[in-house]
Structure formats: structure tokens, C-alpha cells
Design a protein around this nucleic acid. Structure first.
Lengths: 101, 101
DNA sequence: TCGAGAGTTCGATATTTCTAGAACTAACAA
DNA sequence: TTGTTAGTTCTAGAAATATCGAACTCTCGA
């Protein structure tokens, strides 16, 4: 399987990041990744069919929110914390803080 | 003209706020309101027809991002800074910081 | 080389969001 | 009244998103 296309850190757009996080399933995925560090797609599917889940992972990738790498038959997803923090300081923390505490 | 319906501070949803701010025109409106304090709808139309602008103002209202009050024939819009800060500390600042010096 | 597991891609459909003209309403001034 | 300004609401169509089954690709192990 070929490598995924991720936007360069400088190309990450605020509007697209906000859009990417405006969906409940995607936000849940991002929260999980923030906690777990990394996870496969199947581990975060929320009970939906895999084609739907794959679609949402693609959205998150395209928006520059997560990175996906290929590890054998499994795809490992990570939050692009450093890139997001560098470009939009405090944004991710403010969003992830919600629903805690 | 009857009063507008605004969500109660406790009812403001993160997903909807993020969605509301994920559009360039709406984000521009919010930035302006952050600078000016308050403004009429027409002052922030970005050259679009007024039905379109009215639609976006309604989205921002429904999401709990702005409040609109009636002052004679003009509608005055303000950012719901305090409500947003109380519910999502740091979120608005992180978003507004983008695109500043 | 066969099969299984993990995800992607395709295709069709459904839902949501966006755009904008036209008609409408409210507030005010002449 | 009548007209003007400001904005909403209606309506219809366009565009973007979302959903999900089915077929496909990759990788690995038996």
C-alpha cells in the first residue's frame, strides 16, 4: 500500500482543522489518540462500518490533524501534536480539555 | 422583529462551535467582532448578498458564538466571549491568535 | 499459494450546508 | 402614508459531506 499524503506543517489550515474536529466521531478519535499516543484504525471505529471509519480517518489526515504510517498490515495513527501546537498554540489543548475533569 | 434565539451558555457544544468557525467568511466575521467589539450585519458582509450573510450570522448565533440584539432598525452583533471562555477556556484566544503578528 | 486480517477505494445514495433572488417585516424619517 | 434602510425568511438549486456495501490491495502466517 502506498504512503499516505499528509499536508506539510506550514500548509495546515485553521479552517480545515476546525472542520475536521467538528464531527463527533472524529473528535472522539482525536481524544483517544491524545490519550493512547497511537492506535490502529480498527481500534477506534465506534462501531461503524470500516468504509465509514476509513473515510473519517482520511478527513483527519487531509486536514493535517493526524499522521498515518504503515506498520505491516496495520495502519498506525498518531496525533500531529507538535505540528498543530507550533502552528496554532494552545488550540489542541483547549479542545482536548473539554470533557475532562 | 422578534428576539433571536441564542443557546444557553451550558448548551453551547464544542463540535458546533468548531463547525461554526470552520468557514472563512464566518471566521472573518468573528475576527472583526473580536477587534471592533460589536458591529451590524451589513458592516461585515464581505461583499456577499444579504441573504447569504444573514444565513452565516444565523449559523454563528445558533452555534452560540455571537449574540445579536435589536437596536432600532439595525442588528448589533457581539462575540460571546465570556460564555465561550467559561465553557472552552483558551479556545477563542487560540483561534484568534492565528493570523496576527 | 491460500486464506485471513486490516484498510482503502469505488459507486451510489442520502444528508447537510451553502448560495442567492424574491418577497417580507420592522423601525424610522420625511 | 410613503419611502428607505437593515435584515430575515422562503424557496429552489448547487455543492460539499457522510454513509455503507462491495470489490480491491497489502501483508503476513500456515
Amino acid at each position: 500500500m502506498r504512503a499516505f499524503k499528509h499536508p506539510h506543517p506550514d500548509e495546515i489550515e485553521l479552517e480545515r482543522v476546525l472542520y475536521g474536529l467538528s464531527d463527533p466521531l472524529r473528535l472522539a478519535i482525536v481524544r483517544q489518540l491524545a490519550d493512547c499516543g497511537e492506535a490502529s484504525c480498527g481500534a477506534l471505529d465506534g462501531g461503524r462500518p470500516k468504509s465509514s471509519v476509513s473515510y473519517h480517518f482520511q478527513v483527519l489526515r487531509d486536514c493535517g490533524i493526524i499522521a498515518t504510517r504503515n506498520d505491516g498490515p496495520v495502519h498506525i495513527n498518531t496525533l500531529r501534536r507538535a505540528d498543530l501546537n507550533a502552528r496554532f498554540p494552545g488550540l489542541l489543548d483547549a479542545i482536548l480539555a473539554q470533557g475532562r475533569g
